[in-house]
Structure formats: C-alpha cells, structure tokens
Design a protein around this nucleic acid. Sequence first.
DNA 1: GGTAAATCGGACAATTTTTGTCCGGTTTTC
DNA 2: GAAAACCGGACAAAAATTGTCCGATTTACC
Lengths: 161, 161
Amino acid sequence: MMKFSKKLEYALIALVYMSQRGEEQLTTSREFAGQFNIPQEVAGKVMQSLARKNFIRSVQGVKGGYQLATNAGEINLAELINAVDGPFTVVGCMSQEEESCGCDQHDYCNIRSSMSLIHNRIMAFFRSITLKDILSRRIAGLSGESFPVHFDRLLNPTDIK
Amino acid sequence: MMKFSKKLEYALIALVYMSQRGEEQLTTSREFAGQFNIPQEVAGKVMQSLARKNFIRSVQGVKGGYQLATNAGEINLAELINAVDGPFTVVGCMSQEEESCGCDQHDYCNIRSSMSLIHNRIMAFFRSITLKDILSRRIAGLSGESFPVHFDRLLNPTDIK
DNA sequence: GGTAAATCGGACAATTTTTGTCCGGTTTTC
DNA sequence: GAAAACCGGACAAAAATTGTCCGATTTACC
C-alpha cells in the first residue's frame, strides 16, 4: 500500500547510477538494464520519460545513449514522480474540480479538506528532496543512526504553497 | 500512484462520522454503509479491522454496532494504515531483513538507504496526524487559505525513532 | 425457544493498476 | 546499407485492490 512504483525506483536508480559515473558519460538503456537486472524495454521507457522532461539528455543513433542534464542534482522527487508515474494524488478527488469528485452521497468527504492538507504536505515533502540529497545521503553512508542534517529543512509549514 | 486505499478512506470516514455523533452512540456497519454509499460487506470488514485494534468497540447481537473507543482522538494515521492495510512500505525491501531484500544484482540499491530515510520520514508524518487533528481541521473549515497551526509540529527530525 | 439483526471471518470473484512484452519506426555511426 | 541506439504505441501478464458470497456466532425481543 502506498508503495513507490517500480518505474520510480528504476528512475532513481538510473539517475544515481548516472551521477556516479562522470557527467559526460553516456549510458545506454541496455547497459543500465544489464547492470541492475531490469527488463530492457522498461528501462528504456523510464529513461525516455526522464528525457522528455529534460532530466537527462538523449543522444540518438549508434554510440547514442543518455547523459545527465546539467544541474540534474536539483531535480526533486515530486517532479520525478510526475515525470514517471503521472500526477500524484493521495486520494481520488484530489485532481478533479471542486464539485465533481466522483464520490457519491451527501455527507461524504467528511475527509476531503484534511486529505487535501495531507496531500499538500506530502507534495511539499517530495518537492524538498533533490537528487543531490539522495546522492549525498548515500555517501554519508550507513543505515542505523541519527538523522542527517541536510534533511532537516523538510516540511516546515512555509513550504505549503 | 501512491494513493490511499479505499479501505483507509472508509476507515477515516467512519471514525470521523462516529466522532461527530455522540461518543456513546452505536453505529452499525449497515447504517454507515448506507450513509456513505459504501458496499455493506466492505464497510463491515473495515469496522472489524478497527475493532480488532481497539480503535472502536464492537457490540454484538441485535441492537449491536460499533462505538468509538475512549480517546479515539489520539489514534494516529500510521496506526490506522497499519490496522486497515497492513504494514506500510514505500519500497519493497523496507520490511525484510538486511540482506534478503529480493532485488537482485550487484550495485543494486543504489537507493536503499535514502529510501529508508524517506520511509521513516513519511511514517513519522503519519504518526503525527491524529484523528483529532483531522476532525478539528474540518471544523476550522474551508480549503484555500493558510496553514492551520495544529499541523505545524509535524515532521521535525526528533520524530524519527 | 425461535427469529431477526447484528458482528465475525474465510474464500473467492471482479476490477483496476502495475509491470512487462512485442513490434515497427527513426536516427546515426561505420 | 547494416547495426545499434532511441522512440512510442498497443497489448499481455501479473499483482493488488476492491467487492461479493456464504455460513457462523452472539444477543435482543416476542
């Protein structure tokens, strides 16, 4: 429940992978798929999504491949989710117009305004996480202990638009 | 993608609904289902889940139904998700032991530690939202404007266990 | 004591979403 | 011109979600 999609995982893995080999390096979807045991076609599509949003640059033809965009480090998780999975909604009626909503019955959406709030919060959270954050967290290493500093700014109320 | 499940929605609606009619009031699953146009059996099962975790109290037999537990207001969203949908994981390998993970290949989990961090953050966020919060937000009314004060404490680093 | 209304709980069916596959096209290097 | 790459649509398979069915138990009331 509420799991990240595989496509998103693949996209993150790809971006991290490409970050870790030089900026200039070209990576083919085939190579990426091989390295991480991901179905080639799927890897291809994910990278295409990333290219469409200019998170990475595609080079066609033999000797082609993908290359990290300049300041890819600033890509945030919200953009990434949107690029790869389409719009994120914690609850169905988040995207629609005020009244339509799809859910029936009178008192319904009991919950709507709170859900909207939660939705905004999570969006703000995702917006605040950049690829650079993800990268540097890994460099900082290890799993168990206390909370790394550069995550501390996440989700303060002013982030809400 | 990453949507809350219907069961969770139903559970929230139920708890809010029950909160809004007196504490002592009994609510049958049939009545609840009717009010909100939810399939009876589903409504029943959701309420059973809630009862198993003692979020609500069940009274069997004719004239039976469900009753809000005392200080139900303190139930938090994380508990609720767990009760209704089972354990929450942003990414597959979150629940397993260190090594098994399920994902193959060498460099893999590129991403693991960052995902774990994100997972913890979201958990902390959900833990910090109580039923009371959801309720009062609704009373505070309206949608558009600035952020209500009682949500401000969410997600500061010390929440991480 | 029997009947009806309610909670329980398991098995299963239907639907939707996610994930992966296939195939043909275009671009470019050699 | 052939091979290796990106591109993109249609579709198939698998998994998860959602909903249905059925029978059992508990209890109020006649």
